[in-house]
Amino acid sequence: MAYSNKVIDHYENPRNVGSLPKDDPHVGTGLVGAPECGDVMKLQVKVNPQTGIIDEAKFKTFGCGSAIASSSLATEWLKGKTVDQALAIKNTDIVNELSLPPVKIHCSVLAEDAIKAAITDYKKKQAAEGKSAATQVQPSA
């Protein structure tokens, strides 16, 4: 299979490989895919509490070159976006940017799923945070 130059570039020089602290309340983690399917993506975002903007994004991917490129690209796009803007990223945007062939579309779908999962995790944490903050306040009142 011939890869596009952009896929090769992301594969050779992946952006933002790594991990953020899972338990940080401002970090959202998405882990999607399954080893039996040959693809697992972990994508994390860190949201700045002051601005509400994603100022860090990291990924780790077990999968083909297109899956690695899709998640690498996703982390680039996430930085500087608000949570709601992040949710607007579509897999088709990734397909177009990386010129993925039809058999590789599911790699981009996985990246979109990973973004959604990371944001959902972040929102869940924020909601829990709000609640526990409230319960902590009560006893002193």
Binding site: V32, A34, P35, E36, C37, V40, H106, L110
Partner: peptide, 8 residues
């Protein structure tokens, strides 16, 4: 527990 899509 893996989160897999139905089409996978």
């Amino acid at each position: 527990q893996w989160q897999t899509e139905p089409q996978h």
